[in-house]
């Protein structure tokens, strides 16, 4: 936290000095354009190249964006100092009362990404979080360290709906863990099924519901479980290119966040639904639609998918053009997934 505050202060100081010298201030921001996003094979993730864009107030067209960036930094400083947090959407609305208007939330999100790149700090460290929350369920006892909850401990089986992975949980201390693996689950239906079928006991698993693409806090939480508790991470999604990519972002991080994303779990495993499972488990399937095909071809060109395992999966998708959802396993009965499918996966 100190580091971040120092960086923010230095940013403010440099702008003040430029203004005092009668100059129109500028800042150089690492460029987030596609041409500057480079795949780092050694790290197995995307990183930003050397290119920087100058945002300068001598160009009247940059003036608004410059003001927004400085305002965003100022807000981050206040959040950190006051020990508060906020959401992307909050910030979009708050701006107006400071006379800094955003066209839409997309614009304010983009300014936050600029600030992340500029400071080299993910927004979570700036106390800025997205609206959507993943949830977790399983035998892990945590101890909060946010204001007012310093003494509170919680076992993550406390609620049958799971516990939301917000900033408080993401930063909590791990006290006791009965689990031996982490299963990240794409759909809410499958998450509930697994809890009802007591998968957390059968497989000694912490279940994380990602609700589609895993939010950064959820990935960060899984990352900590992998690093601090040594738990292997498995990703269980629908059997389509979109599901494959949920697993890939957990493994290799996201290209959109190449400027800050160091949350990668290279040994996380995609356990299904694999394209081969459709045949093997006789799952009902649908034919690829146009969007699926396009997504598949995008993935085939993506440097992250060049390992033999991934190449094989994509090839199968391409050969068969079939997709199956996680829930398709229910065709063989509600317990099929915990009685047959998952045991074979973990065998």
């Amino acid at each position: 936290m100190r580091d971040v505050l120092v960086k923010l202060e230095a940013l403010g100081e440099s702008i003040c000095v430029q203004l005092e010298n009668g100059e129109l201030p500028f800042i150089d921001i690492p460029s987030r354009t596609t041409s500057n996003i480079i795949y780092d094979k050694a790290e197995g993730r995307f990183v930003l190249g050397e290119a920087r864009t100058r945002r300068t107030t001598s160009n009247v067209k940059h003036l608004r964006a410059f003001t927004q960036t400085v305002w965003m930094a100022y807000m981050a400083k206040r959040l950190i100092e006051e020990g508060k947090s906020t959401t992307l959407r909050d910030l979009y609305y708050m701006a107006e009362s400071y006379g800094v208007k955003f066209k839409d939330q997309q614009e304010s999100d983009s300014i936050i990404a600029d600030l992340e790149a500029l400071l080299g700090v993910p927004r979570e460290q700036l106390r800025i979080f997205p609206e959507e929350r993943a949830t977790v369920y399983g035998d892990l006892t945590i101890k909060y360290n946010v204001q007012g909850y310093e003494k509170t401990t919680l076992n993550l089986t406390a609620s049958p709906d799971g516990v939301a992975i917000g900033p408080a949980l993401a930063g909590a201390e791990f006290q006791n863990c009965g689990a031996e693996r982490v299963i990240m689950v794409e759909s809410g239906g499958m998450f509930t099924r697994l809890i009802e079928e007591r998968a957390h006991e059968k497989f000694k698993a912490l279940l994380i519901h990602t609700a589609g693409q895993a939010p950064r806090l959820a990935r960060q939480f899984a990352y900590r479980l992998r690093r601090e508790l040594g738990l292997p991470v498995y990703v269980f999604t629908d059997g389509d290119p979109w599901g494959a990519h949920i697993a890939m972002v957990v493994i290799s991080g996201s290209a959109n966040a190449a400027h800050v994303d160091s949350i990668v779990i290279p040994d996380a495993k995609w356990i299904g639904v694999l394209p081969t499972d459709i045949e093997e488990y006789k799952l009902p399937f649908e034919k690829f639609n146009e969007k699926d095909w396009k997504r598949l071809h995008d993935l085939m060109a993506d440097p992250r998918y060049q390992s033999p395992f991934w190449r094989e999966q994509l090839k199968r998708f391409e050969e068969e053009g079939r997709k199956s959802e996680q829930q398709a396993l229910s065709i063989h009965g509600l317990s099929y997934v915990t009685e047959k499918y998952l045991p074979e996966k973990f065998a």
């Binding site: 923010l8 202060e9 940013l11 403010g12 702008i15 107030t57 100022y74 800094v100």
Partner: peptide, 10 residues
């Protein structure tokens, strides 16, 4: 505004 936010930031 830039001057104000920057000075508070600094």
């Amino acid at each position: 505004k830039i001057a104000q936010f920057a000075s508070e930031l600094a």
